[in-house]
Design a protein around this nucleic acid. Structure first.
Length: 546
RNA sequence: UGGGGCGUCGCCAAGCGGUAAGGCACCGGGUUUUGAUCCCGGCAUACGCAGGUUCGAAUCCUGCCGCCCCAGCCA
Protein backbone atom coordinates (compact mmCIF):
# COMPACT_ATOMS: atom_id res chain seq x y z
CA UNK A 1 0.00 0.00 0.00
CA UNK A 2 1.81 3.07 -1.20
CA UNK A 3 0.05 5.86 0.53
CA UNK A 4 0.85 9.51 0.53
CA UNK A 5 1.39 10.14 4.20
CA UNK A 6 2.82 13.59 4.63
CA UNK A 7 3.79 14.27 8.19
CA UNK A 8 6.88 16.26 9.10
CA UNK A 9 8.92 13.14 9.71
CA UNK A 10 8.23 11.67 6.30
CA UNK A 11 8.96 15.06 4.72
CA UNK A 12 12.26 15.07 6.54
CA UNK A 13 13.08 11.53 5.45
CA UNK A 14 12.30 12.27 1.81
CA UNK A 15 14.60 15.28 2.03
CA UNK A 16 17.38 13.28 3.63
CA UNK A 17 17.10 10.65 0.94
CA UNK A 18 17.04 13.24 -1.81
CA UNK A 19 20.01 15.21 -0.51
CA UNK A 20 21.98 12.12 0.32
CA UNK A 21 22.04 12.86 4.02
CA UNK A 22 20.71 9.31 4.34
CA UNK A 23 21.44 6.48 1.98
CA UNK A 24 18.79 4.20 3.42
CA UNK A 25 16.23 4.07 6.17
CA UNK A 26 16.80 2.26 9.42
CA UNK A 27 14.53 2.83 12.39
CA UNK A 28 14.09 1.14 15.69
CA UNK A 29 11.36 0.56 18.21
CA UNK A 30 13.05 0.63 21.62
CA UNK A 31 10.74 -0.51 24.43
CA UNK A 32 11.92 -1.11 27.95
CA UNK A 33 10.72 -4.62 28.90
CA UNK A 34 9.08 -3.45 32.10
CA UNK A 35 5.42 -3.70 31.12
CA UNK A 36 3.02 -4.37 28.31
CA UNK A 37 2.63 -2.26 25.21
CA UNK A 38 -0.30 0.13 24.89
CA UNK A 39 -2.03 2.02 22.12
CA UNK A 40 0.48 4.84 22.55
CA UNK A 41 3.26 2.42 21.69
CA UNK A 42 1.23 1.35 18.68
CA UNK A 43 1.56 4.88 17.34
CA UNK A 44 5.33 4.67 17.63
CA UNK A 45 5.40 1.15 16.19
CA UNK A 46 3.29 2.14 13.21
CA UNK A 47 5.50 5.17 12.64
CA UNK A 48 8.82 3.36 12.88
CA UNK A 49 7.81 0.24 10.99
CA UNK A 50 5.60 2.20 8.63
CA UNK A 51 8.32 4.59 7.58
CA UNK A 52 10.87 1.83 7.15
CA UNK A 53 8.40 -0.13 5.05
CA UNK A 54 7.58 2.82 2.82
CA UNK A 55 11.21 3.63 2.15
CA UNK A 56 12.45 0.09 1.75
CA UNK A 57 14.31 0.10 5.04
CA UNK A 58 14.26 -1.99 8.18
CA UNK A 59 13.30 -1.60 11.80
CA UNK A 60 15.07 -3.11 14.75
CA UNK A 61 13.13 -4.21 17.74
CA UNK A 62 15.62 -3.15 20.37
CA UNK A 63 14.94 -3.65 24.03
CA UNK A 64 16.20 -0.86 26.24
CA UNK A 65 17.12 -3.22 29.05
CA UNK A 66 19.49 -1.17 31.15
CA UNK A 67 17.64 -1.35 34.44
CA UNK A 68 17.60 -4.94 35.74
CA UNK A 69 15.49 -3.96 38.73
CA UNK A 70 12.33 -3.54 36.72
CA UNK A 71 12.72 -5.64 33.63
CA UNK A 72 11.88 -9.25 32.91
CA UNK A 73 11.60 -11.92 30.26
CA UNK A 74 7.82 -11.98 30.68
CA UNK A 75 7.68 -8.52 29.22
CA UNK A 76 10.09 -9.15 26.37
CA UNK A 77 7.87 -12.06 25.31
CA UNK A 78 4.70 -10.04 25.67
CA UNK A 79 6.11 -7.19 23.62
CA UNK A 80 7.05 -9.48 20.75
CA UNK A 81 3.63 -11.08 20.81
CA UNK A 82 1.99 -7.67 20.58
CA UNK A 83 4.14 -6.34 17.76
CA UNK A 84 3.69 -9.52 15.74
CA UNK A 85 -0.04 -9.33 16.31
CA UNK A 86 -0.04 -5.73 15.09
CA UNK A 87 1.39 -7.14 11.90
CA UNK A 88 5.00 -6.00 11.82
CA UNK A 89 8.22 -7.95 11.27
CA UNK A 90 11.35 -6.65 12.94
CA UNK A 91 15.07 -6.97 12.46
CA UNK A 92 16.65 -8.54 15.52
CA UNK A 93 15.48 -8.41 18.23
CA UNK A 94 18.49 -6.71 19.69
CA UNK A 95 19.08 -5.67 23.26
CA UNK A 96 20.94 -2.76 24.76
CA UNK A 97 22.49 -5.46 26.92
CA UNK A 98 24.02 -6.97 23.77
CA UNK A 99 26.22 -3.88 23.73
CA UNK A 100 27.21 -3.72 27.38
CA UNK A 101 30.87 -4.49 26.65
CA UNK A 102 31.06 -1.92 23.85
CA UNK A 103 29.30 0.61 26.02
CA UNK A 104 31.80 -0.01 28.76
CA UNK A 105 34.68 0.62 26.36
CA UNK A 106 33.14 3.90 25.25
CA UNK A 107 32.79 4.88 28.88
CA UNK A 108 36.49 4.26 29.45
CA UNK A 109 37.20 6.33 26.38
CA UNK A 110 35.26 9.22 27.85
CA UNK A 111 37.27 8.90 31.05
CA UNK A 112 40.54 8.84 29.16
CA UNK A 113 39.54 12.01 27.36
CA UNK A 114 38.72 13.55 30.73
CA UNK A 115 35.09 13.88 29.73
CA UNK A 116 33.77 11.68 32.50
CA UNK A 117 34.62 11.15 36.14
CA UNK A 118 33.71 8.90 39.00
CA UNK A 119 31.61 10.78 41.50
CA UNK A 120 31.39 9.42 45.03
CA UNK A 121 28.68 11.69 46.28
CA UNK A 122 25.57 10.01 47.71
CA UNK A 123 22.47 10.31 45.54
CA UNK A 124 20.98 12.96 47.79
CA UNK A 125 24.06 15.12 47.44
CA UNK A 126 24.07 14.81 43.69
CA UNK A 127 20.50 15.96 43.68
CA UNK A 128 21.24 18.80 46.07
CA UNK A 129 24.13 20.10 43.99
CA UNK A 130 22.33 19.87 40.69
CA UNK A 131 20.77 23.28 41.28
CA UNK A 132 17.22 24.12 40.30
CA UNK A 133 15.49 25.10 37.11
CA UNK A 134 16.51 28.69 37.70
CA UNK A 135 19.78 28.27 39.61
CA UNK A 136 22.96 26.61 38.39
CA UNK A 137 24.34 23.54 40.09
CA UNK A 138 27.72 23.28 41.73
CA UNK A 139 30.62 21.09 40.75
CA UNK A 140 31.07 17.78 42.46
CA UNK A 141 34.09 17.76 44.78
CA UNK A 142 35.19 14.65 42.86
CA UNK A 143 35.09 16.41 39.51
CA UNK A 144 38.85 16.95 39.38
CA UNK A 145 39.98 13.41 40.02
CA UNK A 146 42.77 12.42 37.68
CA UNK A 147 42.15 10.33 34.64
CA UNK A 148 44.12 7.51 36.23
CA UNK A 149 42.09 7.65 39.43
CA UNK A 150 38.85 7.70 37.47
CA UNK A 151 39.92 4.75 35.36
CA UNK A 152 40.99 2.80 38.41
CA UNK A 153 37.77 3.55 40.26
CA UNK A 154 35.58 2.77 37.26
CA UNK A 155 37.32 -0.57 36.71
CA UNK A 156 36.85 -1.40 40.36
CA UNK A 157 33.19 -0.43 40.07
CA UNK A 158 32.90 -2.98 37.30
CA UNK A 159 34.85 -5.52 39.32
CA UNK A 160 32.26 -5.35 42.06
CA UNK A 161 34.42 -3.77 44.75
CA UNK A 162 31.79 -1.20 45.74
CA UNK A 163 28.32 -1.30 47.14
CA UNK A 164 25.28 0.05 45.30
CA UNK A 165 25.07 3.80 45.44
CA UNK A 166 28.62 4.48 46.52
CA UNK A 167 29.94 5.69 43.19
CA UNK A 168 28.61 6.67 39.77
CA UNK A 169 30.25 7.62 36.53
CA UNK A 170 29.29 11.10 35.44
CA UNK A 171 29.80 13.05 32.24
CA UNK A 172 31.88 16.17 32.71
CA UNK A 173 29.83 18.80 30.92
CA UNK A 174 28.55 21.94 32.63
CA UNK A 175 26.92 22.28 36.02
CA UNK A 176 25.71 25.74 35.04
CA UNK A 177 23.92 24.65 31.90
CA UNK A 178 20.40 25.99 31.52
CA UNK A 179 19.51 22.46 30.47
CA UNK A 180 19.56 20.40 33.64
CA UNK A 181 20.21 17.27 31.62
CA UNK A 182 23.65 18.64 30.82
CA UNK A 183 24.68 19.20 34.44
CA UNK A 184 27.19 16.36 34.64
CA UNK A 185 24.59 13.61 34.13
CA UNK A 186 25.09 10.16 35.56
CA UNK A 187 26.25 7.66 32.95
CA UNK A 188 26.69 4.49 34.99
CA UNK A 189 25.43 3.34 38.34
CA UNK A 190 26.25 0.33 40.49
CA UNK A 191 23.50 -2.25 40.78
CA UNK A 192 24.30 -5.65 42.21
CA UNK A 193 21.29 -7.19 40.55
CA UNK A 194 20.70 -10.06 38.17
CA UNK A 195 19.80 -9.03 34.68
CA UNK A 196 17.25 -11.06 32.73
CA UNK A 197 19.76 -11.63 29.95
CA UNK A 198 23.25 -11.02 31.28
CA UNK A 199 22.62 -12.58 34.66
CA UNK A 200 25.35 -11.57 37.08
CA UNK A 201 27.93 -10.62 34.49
CA UNK A 202 27.59 -6.98 35.37
CA UNK A 203 27.13 -4.98 38.51
CA UNK A 204 27.30 -1.62 36.79
CA UNK A 205 24.60 -0.62 34.36
CA UNK A 206 24.59 2.27 31.86
CA UNK A 207 21.93 4.94 31.94
CA UNK A 208 19.49 5.58 29.11
CA UNK A 209 21.12 8.77 27.84
CA UNK A 210 24.49 7.11 27.46
CA UNK A 211 23.11 3.88 26.04
CA UNK A 212 20.45 4.90 23.62
CA UNK A 213 22.45 7.13 21.32
CA UNK A 214 25.32 4.67 21.11
CA UNK A 215 23.01 1.76 20.30
CA UNK A 216 21.36 3.87 17.61
CA UNK A 217 24.75 4.64 16.12
CA UNK A 218 25.97 1.05 16.30
CA UNK A 219 22.85 -0.17 14.55
CA UNK A 220 23.10 2.48 11.87
CA UNK A 221 19.75 3.98 12.73
CA UNK A 222 19.06 6.67 10.13
CA UNK A 223 16.33 8.44 12.06
CA UNK A 224 15.95 8.03 15.79
CA UNK A 225 12.31 8.79 16.44
CA UNK A 226 11.15 9.41 19.97
CA UNK A 227 8.55 11.35 21.89
CA UNK A 228 8.61 15.01 22.87
CA UNK A 229 9.75 14.57 26.46
CA UNK A 230 13.16 13.55 25.12
CA UNK A 231 13.65 16.81 23.28
CA UNK A 232 15.60 18.17 26.24
CA UNK A 233 17.83 15.13 26.07
CA UNK A 234 18.88 15.67 22.48
CA UNK A 235 21.87 17.85 23.41
CA UNK A 236 23.10 15.01 25.61
CA UNK A 237 22.42 12.44 22.87
CA UNK A 238 24.58 14.56 20.60
CA UNK A 239 27.23 15.24 23.24
CA UNK A 240 27.88 11.57 23.89
CA UNK A 241 28.28 10.74 20.22
CA UNK A 242 30.43 13.82 19.67
CA UNK A 243 32.82 12.84 22.43
CA UNK A 244 33.59 9.24 21.57
CA UNK A 245 35.27 7.73 18.56
CA UNK A 246 32.26 6.55 16.65
CA UNK A 247 31.81 7.11 12.96
CA UNK A 248 28.09 7.61 12.78
CA UNK A 249 25.69 10.03 14.41
CA UNK A 250 21.94 9.54 13.93
CA UNK A 251 19.59 12.49 14.21
CA UNK A 252 17.01 12.32 16.97
CA UNK A 253 13.59 13.56 15.90
CA UNK A 254 10.77 14.00 18.36
CA UNK A 255 7.02 13.73 17.89
CA UNK A 256 4.15 14.05 20.32
CA UNK A 257 2.94 10.99 22.14
CA UNK A 258 -0.62 9.78 21.83
CA UNK A 259 -3.18 10.70 24.43
CA UNK A 260 -6.60 9.10 24.31
CA UNK A 261 -9.56 10.60 26.10
CA UNK A 262 -10.85 8.81 29.20
CA UNK A 263 -7.79 6.71 29.74
CA UNK A 264 -4.24 6.83 30.97
CA UNK A 265 -1.19 5.88 28.97
CA UNK A 266 1.35 5.03 31.57
CA UNK A 267 2.82 1.68 32.42
CA UNK A 268 3.20 2.80 36.00
CA UNK A 269 -0.48 3.61 36.33
CA UNK A 270 -1.41 0.36 34.59
CA UNK A 271 0.57 -1.51 37.21
CA UNK A 272 -1.45 0.15 39.95
CA UNK A 273 -4.71 -0.74 38.24
CA UNK A 274 -3.62 -4.35 38.01
CA UNK A 275 -1.99 -4.60 41.43
CA UNK A 276 -4.90 -2.95 43.22
CA UNK A 277 -7.46 -5.15 41.51
CA UNK A 278 -9.27 -2.41 39.58
CA UNK A 279 -8.88 -4.56 36.48
CA UNK A 280 -8.22 -8.25 36.11
CA UNK A 281 -4.82 -7.94 34.47
CA UNK A 282 -2.74 -6.30 31.75
CA UNK A 283 -5.05 -7.88 29.22
CA UNK A 284 -8.31 -6.79 30.83
CA UNK A 285 -10.51 -5.75 27.90
CA UNK A 286 -10.93 -2.30 29.41
CA UNK A 287 -7.20 -1.64 29.37
CA UNK A 288 -5.67 0.43 26.56
CA UNK A 289 -2.92 -2.15 26.31
CA UNK A 290 -2.59 -3.99 23.03
CA UNK A 291 -3.21 -7.20 24.94
CA UNK A 292 -6.38 -5.71 26.37
CA UNK A 293 -7.60 -4.40 23.05
CA UNK A 294 -6.87 -7.72 21.38
CA UNK A 295 -8.93 -9.51 24.02
CA UNK A 296 -11.61 -6.87 23.68
CA UNK A 297 -11.82 -7.80 20.00
CA UNK A 298 -10.21 -4.77 18.40
CA UNK A 299 -8.71 -5.98 15.11
CA UNK A 300 -5.02 -5.21 14.58
CA UNK A 301 -5.94 -3.57 11.28
CA UNK A 302 -8.24 -1.18 13.07
CA UNK A 303 -5.44 -0.08 15.36
CA UNK A 304 -3.13 0.43 12.40
CA UNK A 305 -5.82 2.45 10.64
CA UNK A 306 -6.33 4.51 13.76
CA UNK A 307 -2.63 5.30 13.95
CA UNK A 308 -2.66 6.29 10.30
CA UNK A 309 -5.59 8.62 10.81
CA UNK A 310 -4.27 10.44 13.87
CA UNK A 311 -1.12 11.49 12.07
CA UNK A 312 2.24 12.47 13.49
CA UNK A 313 3.00 15.99 14.71
CA UNK A 314 4.66 17.80 17.57
CA UNK A 315 1.50 19.22 19.06
CA UNK A 316 0.03 17.48 22.04
CA UNK A 317 -3.64 16.85 22.52
CA UNK A 318 -6.01 14.02 23.21
CA UNK A 319 -7.72 12.00 20.54
CA UNK A 320 -11.39 11.22 21.01
CA UNK A 321 -12.31 7.61 21.64
CA UNK A 322 -14.89 7.90 18.86
CA UNK A 323 -12.18 7.78 16.23
CA UNK A 324 -10.76 4.52 17.52
CA UNK A 325 -14.25 3.03 17.70
CA UNK A 326 -14.95 4.19 14.18
CA UNK A 327 -11.88 2.30 12.95
CA UNK A 328 -12.91 -0.80 14.87
CA UNK A 329 -16.45 -0.76 13.48
CA UNK A 330 -15.21 -0.08 9.99
CA UNK A 331 -13.10 -3.19 9.92
CA UNK A 332 -15.61 -5.41 11.71
CA UNK A 333 -18.45 -4.20 9.49
CA UNK A 334 -16.62 -5.58 6.51
CA UNK A 335 -15.55 -8.88 8.03
CA UNK A 336 -17.64 -10.03 10.99
CA UNK A 337 -20.44 -12.56 10.46
CA UNK A 338 -23.82 -11.52 11.84
CA UNK A 339 -25.97 -13.54 14.20
CA UNK A 340 -28.58 -12.98 16.86
CA UNK A 341 -28.23 -12.81 20.60
CA UNK A 342 -30.55 -11.40 23.22
CA UNK A 343 -28.72 -9.62 26.00
CA UNK A 344 -31.66 -9.01 28.33
CA UNK A 345 -34.27 -11.69 27.51
CA UNK A 346 -38.02 -11.20 27.64
CA UNK A 347 -40.09 -14.33 26.94
CA UNK A 348 -42.54 -14.25 24.07
CA UNK A 349 -45.14 -17.01 23.68
CA UNK A 350 -46.81 -17.40 20.32
CA UNK A 351 -50.37 -18.44 21.14
CA UNK A 352 -51.28 -19.55 17.64
CA UNK A 353 -48.07 -21.37 16.71
CA UNK A 354 -48.80 -25.03 15.97
CA UNK A 355 -46.27 -27.79 15.89
CA UNK A 356 -42.96 -28.08 17.72
CA UNK A 357 -40.57 -25.94 15.78
CA UNK A 358 -39.20 -25.27 12.36
CA UNK A 359 -35.86 -24.39 10.85
CA UNK A 360 -35.09 -21.02 9.30
CA UNK A 361 -32.11 -20.04 7.25
CA UNK A 362 -30.28 -16.78 7.70
CA UNK A 363 -27.20 -15.34 5.97
CA UNK A 364 -24.02 -14.91 7.96
CA UNK A 365 -23.53 -11.57 6.28
CA UNK A 366 -26.36 -10.17 4.14
CA UNK A 367 -23.97 -8.05 2.07
CA UNK A 368 -21.52 -10.88 1.60
CA UNK A 369 -23.35 -13.94 0.28
CA UNK A 370 -20.14 -15.96 0.11
CA UNK A 371 -20.08 -16.08 3.90
CA UNK A 372 -22.99 -18.54 3.56
CA UNK A 373 -25.91 -19.27 5.82
CA UNK A 374 -26.68 -20.86 9.12
CA UNK A 375 -29.85 -22.55 10.31
CA UNK A 376 -31.80 -21.37 13.28
CA UNK A 377 -34.85 -22.82 14.97
CA UNK A 378 -38.16 -21.08 15.48
CA UNK A 379 -40.81 -22.24 17.92
CA UNK A 380 -43.68 -21.03 20.05
CA UNK A 381 -41.43 -19.74 22.79
CA UNK A 382 -38.89 -17.09 21.98
CA UNK A 383 -36.84 -14.40 23.66
CA UNK A 384 -36.66 -10.85 22.52
CA UNK A 385 -34.76 -7.92 23.99
CA UNK A 386 -36.58 -6.47 26.96
CA UNK A 387 -35.82 -3.05 25.57
CA UNK A 388 -37.61 -3.91 22.34
CA UNK A 389 -41.01 -3.79 24.05
CA UNK A 390 -42.66 -0.74 25.59
CA UNK A 391 -46.08 -0.48 27.10
CA UNK A 392 -45.98 3.30 26.66
CA UNK A 393 -43.74 3.81 23.68
CA UNK A 394 -42.15 7.16 22.95
CA UNK A 395 -42.91 8.81 19.62
CA UNK A 396 -41.36 7.11 16.60
CA UNK A 397 -40.76 3.89 18.57
CA UNK A 398 -40.35 1.23 15.93
CA UNK A 399 -40.44 -1.89 18.05
CA UNK A 400 -43.08 -3.94 19.83
CA UNK A 401 -45.95 -2.34 21.74
CA UNK A 402 -49.27 -3.63 23.11
CA UNK A 403 -51.39 -4.40 20.07
CA UNK A 404 -48.41 -3.50 17.90
CA UNK A 405 -46.73 -5.50 15.21
CA UNK A 406 -43.09 -6.14 14.51
CA UNK A 407 -41.00 -8.33 12.23
CA UNK A 408 -38.77 -10.92 13.86
CA UNK A 409 -35.68 -10.75 11.72
CA UNK A 410 -35.46 -13.68 9.29
CA UNK A 411 -38.64 -15.04 10.92
CA UNK A 412 -42.26 -14.02 11.09
CA UNK A 413 -44.29 -10.97 11.89
CA UNK A 414 -45.80 -11.03 15.36
CA UNK A 415 -48.53 -9.00 17.02
CA UNK A 416 -48.55 -8.45 20.76
CA UNK A 417 -51.88 -9.38 22.33
CA UNK A 418 -51.22 -9.60 26.04
CA UNK A 419 -48.70 -8.46 28.60
CA UNK A 420 -48.22 -10.83 31.51
CA UNK A 421 -46.87 -9.24 34.66
CA UNK A 422 -45.60 -10.54 37.95
CA UNK A 423 -46.98 -9.32 41.26
CA UNK A 424 -44.38 -6.58 41.43
CA UNK A 425 -45.36 -5.21 38.05
CA UNK A 426 -42.37 -6.59 36.23
CA UNK A 427 -43.22 -7.80 32.75
CA UNK A 428 -42.81 -11.56 32.74
CA UNK A 429 -43.94 -12.56 29.34
CA UNK A 430 -45.60 -11.35 26.17
CA UNK A 431 -48.33 -13.37 24.55
CA UNK A 432 -48.34 -12.76 20.85
CA UNK A 433 -49.91 -14.01 17.65
CA UNK A 434 -47.68 -14.73 14.71
CA UNK A 435 -48.66 -14.31 11.07
CA UNK A 436 -48.08 -17.68 9.37
CA UNK A 437 -47.95 -16.27 5.84
CA UNK A 438 -45.34 -13.64 6.78
CA UNK A 439 -42.33 -15.93 6.78
CA UNK A 440 -39.22 -14.06 5.80
CA UNK A 441 -38.43 -14.57 2.15
CA UNK A 442 -41.92 -15.78 1.25
CA UNK A 443 -44.12 -13.16 2.83
CA UNK A 444 -47.57 -12.96 1.27
CA UNK A 445 -49.21 -11.19 4.17
CA UNK A 446 -48.95 -7.74 2.68
CA UNK A 447 -48.30 -6.40 6.17
CA UNK A 448 -45.78 -3.65 6.69
CA UNK A 449 -44.47 -3.76 10.24
CA UNK A 450 -42.76 -0.58 11.36
CA UNK A 451 -39.78 -2.34 12.78
CA UNK A 452 -37.56 -5.38 12.81
CA UNK A 453 -36.17 -6.85 16.00
CA UNK A 454 -33.84 -9.69 16.83
CA UNK A 455 -34.78 -12.79 18.79
CA UNK A 456 -33.71 -16.31 19.72
CA UNK A 457 -35.64 -19.56 20.11
CA UNK A 458 -36.00 -20.20 23.85
CA UNK A 459 -35.80 -23.93 23.28
CA UNK A 460 -32.42 -23.94 21.60
CA UNK A 461 -30.78 -20.70 22.68
CA UNK A 462 -27.58 -21.08 24.66
CA UNK A 463 -27.10 -19.18 27.91
CA UNK A 464 -23.99 -17.04 27.72
CA UNK A 465 -22.16 -14.49 29.80
CA UNK A 466 -21.73 -11.28 27.90
CA UNK A 467 -19.39 -8.66 29.26
CA UNK A 468 -20.24 -5.08 28.42
CA UNK A 469 -17.57 -2.47 28.86
CA UNK A 470 -17.71 1.23 29.30
CA UNK A 471 -14.87 3.68 29.62
CA UNK A 472 -12.50 2.88 32.47
CA UNK A 473 -12.45 6.48 33.66
CA UNK A 474 -15.08 9.17 33.92
CA UNK A 475 -12.53 11.96 33.70
CA UNK A 476 -11.56 12.75 30.11
CA UNK A 477 -8.01 13.28 31.28
CA UNK A 478 -7.34 11.22 34.41
CA UNK A 479 -3.98 11.95 35.94
CA UNK A 480 -1.66 10.29 38.40
CA UNK A 481 -3.20 12.38 41.16
CA UNK A 482 -6.82 11.37 40.78
CA UNK A 483 -6.90 8.24 38.74
CA UNK A 484 -8.44 6.06 41.43
CA UNK A 485 -11.25 8.53 42.12
CA UNK A 486 -11.71 9.01 38.39
CA UNK A 487 -12.38 5.30 37.82
CA UNK A 488 -15.77 4.53 36.35
CA UNK A 489 -17.50 2.19 38.83
CA UNK A 490 -19.64 0.70 36.08
CA UNK A 491 -16.93 0.07 33.52
CA UNK A 492 -17.93 -3.61 33.50
CA UNK A 493 -21.50 -4.90 33.25
CA UNK A 494 -22.31 -8.56 32.91
CA UNK A 495 -25.34 -9.70 30.96
CA UNK A 496 -27.01 -13.08 31.25
CA UNK A 497 -27.70 -13.51 27.57
CA UNK A 498 -29.19 -16.11 25.24
CA UNK A 499 -27.44 -16.66 21.96
CA UNK A 500 -28.31 -18.74 18.94
CA UNK A 501 -26.40 -22.04 18.90
CA UNK A 502 -24.60 -21.30 15.64
CA UNK A 503 -22.68 -18.53 17.37
CA UNK A 504 -21.13 -20.91 19.84
CA UNK A 505 -20.38 -23.48 17.16
CA UNK A 506 -18.89 -20.99 14.71
CA UNK A 507 -15.18 -20.81 14.02
CA UNK A 508 -15.37 -17.04 13.88
CA UNK A 509 -14.08 -15.28 16.96
CA UNK A 510 -15.57 -11.86 16.18
CA UNK A 511 -19.23 -11.47 15.28
CA UNK A 512 -21.87 -8.86 15.03
CA UNK A 513 -24.85 -9.58 17.24
CA UNK A 514 -27.42 -7.85 15.10
CA UNK A 515 -28.62 -4.51 16.37
CA UNK A 516 -26.43 -4.62 19.48
CA UNK A 517 -22.80 -4.55 18.54
CA UNK A 518 -19.66 -6.47 17.74
CA UNK A 519 -18.64 -9.23 20.12
CA UNK A 520 -15.73 -11.58 20.49
CA UNK A 521 -15.33 -14.87 22.27
CA UNK A 522 -13.25 -14.19 25.34
CA UNK A 523 -9.84 -15.68 24.72
CA UNK A 524 -9.39 -16.72 28.31
CA UNK A 525 -12.80 -17.73 29.57
CA UNK A 526 -14.86 -18.93 26.62
CA UNK A 527 -15.76 -22.61 26.47
CA UNK A 528 -18.58 -24.18 24.50
CA UNK A 529 -20.10 -25.29 27.79
CA UNK A 530 -19.92 -21.85 29.26
CA UNK A 531 -19.73 -19.29 26.48
CA UNK A 532 -18.31 -15.92 27.43
CA UNK A 533 -18.34 -12.97 25.06
CA UNK A 534 -16.86 -9.51 25.24
CA UNK A 535 -18.61 -6.64 23.57
CA UNK A 536 -15.93 -5.10 21.39
CA UNK A 537 -17.96 -2.02 20.55
CA UNK A 538 -21.64 -1.21 20.29
CA UNK A 539 -23.20 -0.45 16.93
CA UNK A 540 -23.58 3.19 16.07
CA UNK A 541 -27.03 4.26 17.24
CA UNK A 542 -28.89 7.22 15.84
CA UNK A 543 -32.10 6.45 17.72
CA UNK A 544 -33.27 9.49 19.61
CA UNK A 545 -36.31 8.80 21.83
CA UNK A 546 -39.00 11.44 21.68
C1' U B 1 11.03 34.18 37.24
C1' G B 2 15.91 29.09 33.65
C1' G B 3 15.70 25.80 29.37
C1' G B 4 12.96 23.06 25.57
C1' G B 5 8.38 22.57 22.75
C1' C B 6 3.35 23.55 20.99
C1' G B 7 -0.95 26.83 19.58
C1' U B 8 -5.51 25.98 12.05
C1' C B 9 -13.50 23.92 13.02
C1' G B 10 -15.89 20.08 19.23
C1' C B 11 -11.36 16.20 18.26
C1' C B 12 -7.20 14.75 14.94
C1' A B 13 -4.83 17.14 10.88
C1' A B 14 -3.14 19.27 5.65
C1' G B 15 -1.06 23.91 4.47
C1' C B 16 5.73 26.10 3.90
C1' G B 17 3.80 34.21 0.74
C1' G B 18 -1.17 33.94 -3.51
C1' U B 19 -6.15 34.25 -1.04
C1' A B 20 -8.43 27.59 4.58
C1' A B 21 -7.53 19.74 2.13
C1' G B 22 -9.26 15.54 4.51
C1' G B 23 -11.01 12.34 8.50
C1' C B 24 -13.81 11.70 13.18
C1' A B 25 -17.93 13.90 15.68
C1' C B 26 -22.33 16.52 14.81
C1' C B 27 -26.84 18.09 11.83
C1' G B 28 -30.22 17.26 7.61
C1' G B 29 -32.10 13.88 3.53
C1' G B 30 -32.34 9.05 0.60
C1' U B 31 -31.93 3.47 0.49
C1' U B 32 -32.56 -0.55 4.01
C1' U B 33 -36.25 -7.21 6.97
C1' U B 34 -29.81 -4.57 11.65
C1' G B 35 -32.91 2.86 14.23
C1' A B 36 -26.39 -0.73 11.46
C1' U B 37 -24.08 -0.46 6.72
C1' C B 38 -24.38 2.43 2.21
C1' C B 39 -25.47 7.12 -0.53
C1' C B 40 -26.28 12.57 -0.89
C1' G B 41 -25.87 17.33 1.46
C1' G B 42 -24.42 20.85 5.55
C1' C B 43 -20.54 22.11 8.94
C1' A B 44 -13.63 27.66 10.03
C1' U B 45 -14.82 35.28 5.70
C1' A B 46 -11.25 31.94 9.43
C1' C B 47 -5.82 30.04 11.22
C1' G B 48 -4.10 32.08 20.13
C1' C B 49 -3.93 37.81 20.47
C1' A B 50 -1.84 42.62 18.91
C1' G B 51 1.14 45.26 15.79
C1' G B 52 4.40 45.33 11.42
C1' U B 53 6.55 43.89 6.30
C1' U B 54 4.09 42.93 1.45
C1' C B 55 0.04 44.25 -4.23
C1' G B 56 -1.13 39.96 -1.22
C1' A B 57 0.31 36.53 5.27
C1' A B 58 -2.34 30.76 8.59
C1' U B 59 2.36 30.99 6.13
C1' C B 60 7.81 36.42 7.13
C1' C B 61 9.14 39.99 11.52
C1' U B 62 8.17 41.98 16.61
C1' G B 63 5.68 41.83 21.17
C1' C B 64 2.24 39.58 24.17
C1' C B 65 -1.09 35.39 25.94
C1' G B 66 -2.14 30.21 26.81
C1' C B 67 -0.82 25.02 27.25
C1' C B 68 2.88 20.88 27.70
C1' C B 69 7.81 18.89 29.22
C1' C B 70 12.52 19.12 32.31
C1' A B 71 15.70 19.46 38.68
C1' G B 72 15.60 9.73 38.80
C1' C B 73 22.00 6.61 40.55
C1' C B 74 13.84 5.59 35.45
C1' A B 75 13.23 5.13 30.27
Amino acid sequence: MTEDLRDFIRHRIRDDLRTGASDGIVTRFPPEPNGYLHIGHAKSICLNFGVAGEFDGRTYLRYDDTNPLRESQEYVDGIQRDIAWLGFAWAGPTFASDYFERLYEFAEELIKRDRAFVCSLPAEDIRATRGTLTEPGTDSPYRDRTVDDNLDLFRRMRAGEFADGTHVLRAKIDMASANVNMRDPVLYRIRHASHHRTGDDWCIYPMYDFTHCICDALEGVSHSLCTLEFEDHRPLYDWVLDNIAINYHPPQIEFSRLNLEYTVMSKRLFSSLVDDGHVTGWDDPRMPTLAGMRRRGYPAGAIREFCRRIGVTKSDGAVEYALLEFCVRQELEATAPRAMAVLDPLRVVLTNYEGDSESLSAPWHPQQPDQGHREMTFSSTLYIERDDFRESPPRKYRRLTPGGMVRLRYGYIIVCEEVVKAADGEIEELRCRYVPESKSGSDTSGLKPKGVIHWVDANTAVPAEVRLFERLFNDPNPGAGNFVEALNPTSLLIADARVEPAIVASEATSMQFERTGYFVKDARDFTSDRPVFNRTVALRDSYKPG
